[in-house]
Design a protein around this nucleic acid. Structure first.
Lengths: 216, 216
DNA sequence: CGGGAAACGGGGAAAAGATCTCCGTTTCAC
DNA sequence: GTGAAACGGAGATCTTTTCCCCGTTTCCCG
């Protein structure tokens, strides 16, 4: 359901202005979601993209479809960052550090807020992308742990949740420039992740499964 | 403006059920703000408090008044935590640590999100409470810094923003139980705050003033 | 170039959602 | 027991968002 508009587009060559507008809308949507949350008015997204609202509705059947596309885009880009960090950084902890900061720039925090009510988490694309991301980040952490630089009592969930939270837009209205603080705080968090551990943590390492209580 | 409902109440003895409902509403509002943000429907707050919506409107002239009361309450309680940590903990870093975790339990994160558009930041009560909080936390940090346990390149703003962000409800719908992770992540962050610093931070220490660009 | 199909934008109707009031009923205090 | 105050729920009103309609513009291809 709802995937029609996309399918139709791919069937025909499509006009250049149409595809350009589509990209613009996606970019605008990403920004708008980051700034105002997942229920930002679609008209606002259209306005930000510099197109009429009818154009948005022409490209995306409903909010759901738009959200899915944006989420897939972002997931893919973050996974790329994880992969390239794995491939290019010789030092294990440095690779992890690089990934964290790059992921922050992609605004994972905002992405996570897209997992709203009507979101189909079992969409093939999304599931695939998430699995790939999980695999890459797990390797980043395993490497760092094995090299003795990452404290052993933290899980992938600890890292992902912290990134998510620290990269979200600040609550207060005006100060939307989290960027100023984001990287500082991520860096402090990363310093806390280093081995040897400077304190004992409550509870147990957070895993990916912890986020899906309703798993088969 | 808007303080009438409260004033009137205090003038007369007031009925016990009325004051009880008032407390219930404030508590419900705090929870609702924490969970759904500052623009949660007032009817939803009334429902959560187990009272009719009319009762809410009878006690609070408008959303603004309710927000102010909730904010003042929370600020006061957090300040208490800072003061008691200062008074009771002999070790400077331990005092800081204790304050951070207690503040988290009070959900500072949610409180911060109350600083929405219509909020009067210059309200005497609020300003006073904020100044007192700032003073207390500054002392906590100064003590820890002077004892050589806190890295010198972090400011009060760094700490407050991080607490705020890490204690906010998770973006996704279901997983509203941040509590499970919150304290772990705060602890990791605190470990990153310890001296000696394990890395260099970008930018400069964040102060309180950084949040008010429109200061006289 | 020029014709025709597709895409566009803006305005506004329809729907959804939130606010707040009215009023009959219940609860408290004396 | 009685009067005054507080209560709850229903719904009118106002705001916000969605989405459609249709006249105009832009692109593609011959």
């Amino acid at each position: 359901m709802g995937g029609m508009a996309t399918a139709e587009r791919k069937a025909q060559p499509a006009r250049v202005d149409a595809t350009r507008n589509r990209e613009r809308i996606i970019a605008a949507a990403r920004e708008a979601f980051v700034e105002h949350g997942p229920s930002v008015p679609l008209d606002a997204i259209a306005h930000r993209a510099g197109v009429g609202n009818a154009t948005l509705y022409r490209h995306f059947a409903d909010r759901n479809e738009l959200v899915h596309v944006v989420a897939s885009y972002s997931l893919a880009r973050i996974t790329e960052q994880a992969d390239s960090a794995l491939a290019e950084e010789p030092d294990a902890f440095e690779a992890l550090r690089r990934f964290v900061h790059r992921a922050a720039d992609e605004r994972v925090g905002a992405l996570c807020s897209l997992l709203y009510d009507g979101f189909d988490k079992n969409d093939a694309n999304v599931v695939d992308a998430r699995v790939r991301l999980e695999a890459a980040v797990t390797r980043l952490m395993d490497n760092a742990r094995e090299s003795g630089q990452l404290r052993p009592d933290v899980g992938i969930g600890d890292l992902m949740v912290a990134i998510t939270q620290l990269t979200r837009p600040l609550a207060g209205t005006a100060c939307a420039h989290v960027e100023r603080y984001m990287h500082r705080h991520l860096q402090l968090f990363l310093d806390g992740l280093r081995a040897p551990a400077r304190s004992e943590l409550s509870g147990t390492a957070v895993t990916f499964e912890d986020f899906e209580p309703d798993r088969i």
